[in-house]
Design a binder for these strands. Structure first.
Lengths: 186, 186
DNA sequence: TAAGTTAGTAGACGCTCGTTTACTTCGTCA
DNA sequence: TGACGAAGTAAACGAGCGTCTACTAACTTA
C-alpha cells in the first residue's frame, strides 16, 4: 500500500512554505520546530534547509509573502479608519485572515528574528501608514495605530476567537472606527 | 579574596525572585533559562527548583506579584483615560515601570504558561477595568483598551525606548488620553 | 540502455534545555 | 564537642533542538 512519492522540487518547496506559514502563524517562531514543519508538509526535514538554508531564512521568506494588510492601506483616505477597524475586528474573531501578521505578533519576543520582524512591520505598516497621514507627529499616530493592531493579535491569542463574542460585529467595528479616527487625525 | 557565602534561605529565595522578575520582563518566558536566572541571582541552579518547584511555578510567582498597574485603576473615574494614557506612554519610553506587564506581553505565545497569563490579565486588567465602565459592551471596550496597552508593550519591545522619541511626552499623553476616552465612554 | 544528475531519506552530531541526584559544608543545639 | 538538619554545590540525566553528512533511488540524457 506504500505510495511511491513522485519527485517534485517546486511542489515540495511549496508544501514546506505553506506548512511553515500556517505553523508560524499559529505557534510563533520559537514553538515551531523543523520536525513539525517537515511532518506538516509531509516532507523530509533535510529538505527544509536544502531549499531555504535555515529556519531563520524560511521564516524570513514566510514573512516576506504579502498578507492581506496592504489592501487596507490602499483606497481613499477618508475610509481608512473604517478599513483598519474592520481589519482589527476580523483578526479578533477569526484568525486565518492574516497569517503573516499573526506570525509577526506571535514571534516578536524572539531575538534571533528581531530584525526581520522590525523591518517587516516598518515597511508593511508603519511607513505606509505614516506616509498617508498629514499634520505633525504622523509617525507617532501611526505607531499608536500599530500598537492597537498588534495588541489585537495578542488579545486574540490569549482569549481565542471568542475574545469579543458578546457584542455584535457592527458595534465592535463602529467603536474601533471612532478610535482610529481619533488616533489618525492631524 | 574569596568571600565566604553566608547561608540565608530567605535572602537567596528573594535574589532568585528578583532576578527572575527582571529577566522575564526583559526576555519573556521562553528565552529565560534556569542557568541564566541562577547566574543573575548568584545562586545555584538547583536551589531554584528547591524553592519554587519548577520554572513554570517560579514564573507564576513572579506574575502574582502586584505591579504598578493596579494604581492606575484606582482613583476617580473621570481621570481614568488620562492615567491609562500616562501608563502607556511611560511603558513606551522607559520599560522598567511595570516588569510584570512586560513579562506578560513578552510571554503570551508560550503555551506552557497560557493559563497563568490569561488569569492574570483577567484579574488585574480586564475585569477591574470592565467593572469601572457603565453602559453596554463594557467588556468589549475594556478589551480594546487592553489590546492597546499590550500592543504598546510589543511596540516598545520592537523599537526600543525610542519608539516614540520624536514628539514631546505631553503630546503623546494627550493623544492617548483622547483615544482612551473614545474607547471607554458608554 | 548506461551514466549522470538530483530529489528524497535516515540517522547522527553537537548543543542546550529543565530537572534531579548525590554530595559537601555551614550553623545550631544537646 | 559531636551529631544532625538544612543551605549550597557539582555533575549528570534524558529529551529536544537546528543542522549536517552519507546514502538511496528516481528521472533525464546521451
Amino acid at each position: 500500500m506504500e505510495e511511491v512519492r513522485r519527485r517534485d522540487r517546486e511542489g515540495t518547496r511549496q508544501r514546506i512554505l505553506d506548512a511553515a506559514r500556517r505553523l508560524f502563524a499559529d505557534l510563533g517562531y520559537d514553538h515551531v520546530t523543523m520536525r513539525l514543519i517537515a511532518a506538516e508538509a509531509d516532507a523530509n526535514i533535510a529538505l527544509i534547509n536544502r531549499y531555504f538554508g535555515s529556519k531563520r531564512e524560511l521564516f524570513a521568506e514566510v514573512i516576506a509573502m504579502q498578507g492581506r494588510f496592504p489592501g487596507v492601506l490602499e483606497g481613499p483616505g477618508e475610509g481608512l479608519p473604517r478599513r483598519l477597524a474592520e481589519y482589527v475586528a476580523d483578526r479578533l474573531r477569526s484568525d486565518r485572515s492574516s497569517p503573516v501578521m499573526a506570525a509577526l505578533s506571535r514571534s516578536s519576543a524572539s531575538p534571533e528574528i528581531h530584525g526581520i520582524i522590525k523591518d517587516r512591520v516598518n515597511s508593511a505598516i508603519m511607513e505606509p501608514l505614516a506616509a498617508r497621514l498629514s499634520g505633525e507627529d504622523a509617525r507617532m499616530r501611526a505607531s499608536i495605530a500599530t500598537a492597537l493592531i498588534t495588541g489585537a493579535g495578542t488579545l486574540r491569542q490569549l482569549y481565542g476567537p471568542e475574545a469579543l463574542d458578546g457584542p455584535a460585529y457592527e458595534a465592535v467595528v463602529a467603536r474601533l472606527t471612532r478610535i482610529f479616527e481619533v488616533c489618525l487625525e492631524g
